[in-house]
Design a protein around this nucleic acid. Structure first.
Lengths: 366, 366
DNA sequence: TGAACAAACCGTAACGGTTCAGAAGCCGAT
DNA sequence: ATCGGCTTCTGAACCGTTACGGTTTGTTCA
């Protein structure tokens, strides 16, 4: 838009004061401390402001003086389509936005430019604090945030010395899911997971890459699965794990296809997110595999669509996750010890998990 | 989080300069114009900065001086759950975020505090421009935004004198949808719509409220429907319109229930959004009504779930809508004439619309 | 030898506010 | 008459930076 500029130079508090023949202090008070001047004068100030097209005190100048920006920054992964297309991520965003709204502060989405390591946006953001969500632990943007002298809360990330943290107990949640499968009798399983590092690898994942994964959540879930299945006598090196860089239903389906093509005998597909699981479900249907009779499929997150699909999954309160992060950050004023909030999770057994068919059933039907 | 503050008083550019025995300009240049000083000195500056814990130039002070905030504001409806739960709205958000990322500027979500008319957040936002999306045309926050001397783009809103605008041609799109229904032979129709004003009304909508609706999109769609059906000989006052304040599938279902209970003879349910239509679809199923044999249902927006459900709807490019708004805003520098971008829409006939059954069929079966 | 010019660095003046310690004026109480 | 206490308004300092137009220093070349 381009409404006409009233004057060559925008009116300022000083010019208003001059016009009125009062001090700048008084004009400032007219806006910020109505009790500090007579009602008549205040009215006169506001009227003159309107006449001169003065839009009120400049927010940036005010921020500089008061040392408050009235906004919190959110550092999101460079992968915006993930952040906006995954209901779990959107839930976190919504929760955070709600917390901010409650506190009357803005939410400043910081662009994490993909590819080029341009961290300037982090430095340029005028915010009172940061929330960091779902970025790899070696992301330079994260480092830049930690550099800034403002409070920070990290969500779904590994602990950083002295920094507040919010997240579910991925470890325990994954173990309970794995135990559910072990209890059902599954020993030949396959895993579909999200991106593990900043470089793309739409393929099977060797052990080394699993262990060195830079996305904390994925690494934790894989490790917990490995530990639990090892304890049940399954050699984890022999378990196929397929990774996908993009996070959507179609990629979930293609990952399932890739895995099932190579390992047709797996009895369960463990997916590290519901979105991937929904894709796997679609692929199973395409292959004529009945779920859960022929194939067990599990997800992670507990999004609404998964519930509708009856997916066995681990539910985590995503909205609450965002809210907690926001409240933690906004209440961080002069707290001393860093705080960690662990969110409850819940194993939700749906209609997509069941005991594996025996070998005989496989060949001769139930 | 609360990392230890290195010094009582944070280091500034000035203190750094003093420590180094150079001018502030030089330190500033070390960060902003490396070519303006010798590499050795620059290295020394940066090293000393690290040693003193100087985090680089303060973003707010810089913004004040350069008159650039490096962020655009987004004024969203107070109804955050709408903004984050409706895929169409999330699509706009994503598109806008993408445009911002391309330009390397942040996206500042401005809280539009519900209820209390606290417009302060708009004044407090340090941004270079605003995008306004899906707020009622009498919202005080919108007025506050227009007050601010920065470029503004409004999305899905009525035109405002001299302000850039992005939106689909709701009028034409709705007419094409209505003509589709008229062509099929529907004359007894009902309408489900989203909130029409800031006050809550989960009920039938009298003509006056339809015409005075403060949500531009809803008003336009209703008006276009009215005009088209009137032209086909349908008296619009006799057409039941049910409004819902909240926007989700369940409310869509309850609205359908309310309407069908009162007007069991309608042959088509026209919904002003896909979300409502999905709810109507669910309610139809619950009643044992076959769609489209017994009841035609149409949506609006063309979200993915609607496509999957085979819904007859009008598709609009939501991602593009957000992107366009962003690009328009970011390219608004010294443009003179305000610009209006009208996005293409497309009637997508799915499997939820068909000719109405005749009266006989109604009573005696097909 | 000195004029011309580039590179490196600097001083000052904003940028547009808020804040705090008073000053001025007025009033009623002592 | 003095004093204290209120209300109302002011002056000056400060927030941390960058823009602008210099000055200084060193090199090159006629």
């Amino acid at each position: 838009m381009n409404r006409p500029m009233r004057t060559r130079r925008q009116a300022t508090l000083a010019s208003l004061a001059a016009e009125l023949g009062v001090s700048r202090t008084t004009v400032s008070n007219a806006y910020n401390r109505p009790d500090q001047l007579s009602p008549e004068l205040r009215k006169r100030v506001l009227e003159t402001a309107r006449r001169l097209g003065y839009p009120g005190p400049d927010p940036v100048a005010r921020s500089l003086r008061t040392r408050k920006a009235g906004a919190v920054g959110l550092l999101l992964t460079e992968n915006l389509s993930y952040a906006f297309r995954d209901p779990a991520a959107v839930g976190v965003l919504e929760g955070l936005a709600l917390a901010c709204e409650d506190a009357g502060v803005g939410l400043h989405l910081v662009p994490a430019s993909p590819g080029r390591e341009d961290v300037a946006a982090v430095h340029r953001a005028g915010v009172d604090g940061f929330v960091v969500y779902s970025v790899p632990d070696d992301d330079p943007h994260l480092a830049a945030v930690l550099q800034r002298p403002v409070p920070t809360v990290i969500v779904d990330q590994p602990e950083v010395e002295g920094v507040d943290r919010v997240g579910p107990d991925d470890e325990a949640a994954t173990v309970s899911l794995a135990n559910h499968l072990v209890g059902l009798g599954h020993r030949q399983v396959g895993v579909l997971c999200m991106r593990l590092a900043r470089d793309r690898n739409d393929d099977f994942v060797p052990m080394s890459r699993q262990q060195e994964a830079h996305y904390h959540v994925q690494r934790t879930r894989l490790a917990a699965l490995a530990r639990t299945f090892e304890a049940a006598g399954v050699a984890w090196e022999s378990v196929p794990v397929v990774e996908r860089f993009e996070h959507n239903v179609d990629d979930g389906a293609s990952a399932a296809r890739q895995l099932l093509d190579a390992y047709p005998r797996v009895t369960a597909l463990i997916c590290t997110s519901d979105i991937l699981a929904l894709g796997a479900l679609a692929e199973a249907g395409r292959r004529g595999l009945r779920v859960p009779a022929d194939l067990t499929i599990t997800g992670f997150d507990g999004i609404a669509e998964a519930t509708r699909a009856g997916l066995t999954t681990v539910h985590q309160p995503v909205l609450e996750k965002g809210k907690s992060a926001g409240r933690l950050l906004l209440g961080a004023a002069d707290r001393v010890a860093p705080k960690v909030i662990t969110l409850p999770t819940e194993l939700r057994v749906g209609t997509t998990s069941a005991p594996p068919r025996t070998a005989e059933e496989r060949w001769f039907g139930p």
